[in-house]
Write a protein that binds this DNA or RNA. Sequence first.
DNA 1: CTATGAAAACTAACATGTTAGTCAACCAGA
DNA 2: TCTGGTTGACTAACATGTTAGTTTTCATAG
Lengths: 236, 236
Amino acid sequence: MNTTDIDATRLQDISAFDGSLAHKVYLALQEAILSLQFLPGQVIRKGPVCEKLGVSRSPVSEAIARLANEGLVDVIPQSGTRVAYFSMEDIREGTFLRQALELASVAKVAEDRSEDQFAQINRNLRLQTLLVEDLDYSGFYQADEEFHALLMLFTGYPRLKTVARMVSLQVTRARMLLLPTPGRATETLDEHQAVVDAIRARDADAAQRAMRHHLGQLMPRIEALAETRPELFQSR
Amino acid sequence: MNTTDIDATRLQDISAFDGSLAHKVYLALQEAILSLQFLPGQVIRKGPVCEKLGVSRSPVSEAIARLANEGLVDVIPQSGTRVAYFSMEDIREGTFLRQALELASVAKVAEDRSEDQFAQINRNLRLQTLLVEDLDYSGFYQADEEFHALLMLFTGYPRLKTVARMVSLQVTRARMLLLPTPGRATETLDEHQAVVDAIRARDADAAQRAMRHHLGQLMPRIEALAETRPELFQSR
DNA sequence: CTATGAAAACTAACATGTTAGTCAACCAGA
DNA sequence: TCTGGTTGACTAACATGTTAGTTTTCATAG
């Protein structure tokens, strides 16, 4: 086994997932790529994947087709498939698209929210405060994700969350390289607080400004990674 | 052949397209669905499709998987595939997503555009004027599409156009039902003019307002369709 | 030692065979 | 006529066989 191959044994058991076989395989591969267990540039061979997961080539091919569509892998026709390198252009674009969707969402929610919806958002924020106090960064990360998911949910548009996730998959992967720090967690909390305050006041403009400011913090931190981990970035 | 089946003979020859066979099949099916040659509720059988296009089930299956992912067809597991009905919820959501992306784009372009880019946008607008004068509605539709495509192109984000198209495929299909009228074409032209004026002035806010107003004209016209053509809409 | 090119080895893409889930038609019994 | 169950036809999903294009290897010529 060449060192440029993925280590298929790292794939988690697909019986944990549900849906079609192809969907299970897709989730397993995506998870491995996003968590950086499969590194950029590594070659994905169908053989080992089929063997490890105990399925035939069909569901694996379908899964890879979806990953290629999302830009997580590059398929070289008649030749091979490899885990996509990080690309600052892709990440910038993903951030832009994500921001466009988040801004539209937060404005709509600020205008249309019910009292109960606001209560749920506020409850999530208080949970975040608690987790920061307890220095539980993994929990905080989860609550952070849920905060944004709640906003999208409350727009009443079910596909929004899915689309937002899809367009910013590269960003999600890059975030895995960012180490959580007490300082950043506290800042994040303040930024979320500003968003919630604006939603409380039903001030769509202020909510957008607060969200824009919040999301604007991410890109500079990712830019720094290109220096720290150049081997993960595009072109060889 | 049941009347609820698609008429596979209406598929255009795939040799006109390029890319993999699966991609060609995908384009042919998408074209047929968007142009309403395949009507909502009709059953897509792989057999006739394979026969007409002269390919095996593999590329057809892959194409259908992509269409299902985009919401243009509904796959009932182990049972069948049918052309998706129009759904006002989907169309509203598609409009929302599209607007989010268009607003972000037009703001960025208003701020960052080069002189040459503005010239191209303005040239397109003048072409639109010409086509309206000549009552060439088909040409105007095309120029309209290109107008929005140019704005997205000039953001410098290559995937933007693709994503915007994908999220609003249902809207695109619904637009096919709207008959072009001289009045609406003239209005559209004025709305585009306002957008261009704001871009000329590098006024991002005004550009967003103008674009929001422009895009806001579409949804009411589509809403009216649910009354006119209820058989195309969801639930039986 | 380097350049070259032919062929072997490997791959995605495509074709086809198989399995198992769904659904409608039919029939028996009330 | 209606109900409930059984069967069989049909389908997507999955498995496997085949093809054609790409890359690497390696012998040979320069």
